[in-house]
Design a protein around this nucleic acid. Structure first.
Length: 315
RNA sequence: UCGGACGGUGCUCCU
């Protein structure tokens, strides 16, 4: 069972949910009776890869097979319903799980709040927050981070500040997720001045700075048509030990494309040493859509050829 | 009693 668990988790971590499930089904045929801990990573893998319908099927078979769920299992079900936009069903799980002896926890509520923020607006998310507190479940830092990002991205920075106050009164101090949630939200709301000021504060006042926060700075530069500056900044930071991620490269790549600087985009794209990274399907989408917009068939063919040679599928 | 699993949040394209 230990080995199976390790293998299944390994597959899921690598994004190979089908393989994980295949392995498990082989063992089931041999009479292996798995623990729910083996199913949960598969359920979450299906959620993340937007295969909710498969999750519902697996869930049904779990019910039939009489396997005992645990609290993780219910979170995956809620996650799947939310991803499908089925909030009523997601909320129903909050009640149904109690019949199995599980009280909805902060993971359950935060999952719903996150999806409400993204799809239905903040007010409904706030209502859910009230329900959660009324039910005796306290929000944690993740819950607050979700709400902070939503507030900032809807131009409600003032309320976000009030929430920061509530947070600290409840004993939570901001972490690096909080910073990037705030900055990313401001940027999404096109509040460049605010974002700029905030990021400057973060960068200069000795806060914990990580790659996503740097990426937000880079994105901000690119939004202002300063992609060349952004690239120089990355190179300068690399001298100081900064290790860019694929997001870093894709952000700048997209910046160049929006500035219609296809040559510079291609130069970056062809730059062999992405410090351990390689263009991914998103990079190819960016460069391909730019080439198409500019009706540059030479580049289109080159990119297609390179995708073929690197084994990247058209998505 | 203790221990054990990718359970929910931030950055890039398109939606």
């Amino acid at each position: 069972e230990r080995w199976v668990s390790l293998l299944v988790c390994g597959f899921c971590r690598a994004g190979l949910v089908c393989e994980a499930y295949f392995l498990l089904s082989l063992l089931l045929d041999k009479g292996f009776f798995p623990n729910i801990c083996i199913y949960n990573p598969i359920l979450f893998g299906l959620c993340r890869s937007s295969q909710s319908s498969k999750l519902f099927v697996v869930f049904g078979s779990l019910l039939k097979g009489g396997l005992r769920f645990n609290d993780h299992t219910f979170v995956s079900l809620i996650y799947a319903y939310c991803k499908e936009g089925l909030y009523k069903e997601a909320c129903l799980v909050l009640y149904k799980m109690q019949a199995y002896g599980f009280k909805p926890n902060v993971f359950c509520y935060t999952t719903i709040i996150k999806f409400l923020c993204d799809a239905r607006g903040i007010e409904e998310a706030m209502d859910m927050l009230k329900i959660m507190v009324a039910e005796g479940c306290d929000p944690d830092l993740v819950t607050y981070n979700v709400i902070l990002r939503a507030l900032c991205s809807h131009n409600r920075v003032y309320e976000a500040c009030k929430f920061l106050g509530i947070m600290s009164r409840n004993g939570f101090s901001p972490d690096k997720f909080t910073y990037s949630a705030l900055a990313g939200g401001m940027l999404q709301a096109r509040q460049i001045e605010l974002a700029n000021g905030f990021l400057h504060h973060i960068l200069t006042k000795g806060f914990d700075v990580d790659v996503p926060i740097c990426n937000i700075c880079i994105h901000m530069l690119c939004q202002q048509y300063n992609s060349s500056v952004a690239l120089s900044l990355v190179k300068a930071l690399m001298e100081k030990g900064f290790i860019p991620s694929n997001v870093t490269y894709n952000t700048i790549l997209n910046g160049f494309c929006k500035e219609q600087k296809l040559d510079e985009a291609l130069e970056l794209f062809n730059y062999c040493d992405w410090v351990g990274n390689k263009p991914d399907s998103l990079s190819f989408n960016i460069i391909m859509s730019a080439a198409c917009k500019l009706r540059n068939s030479t580049v289109i063919h080159k990119v297609l050829h390179r995708m073929e040679s690197e084994g990247i599928q058209l998505n």
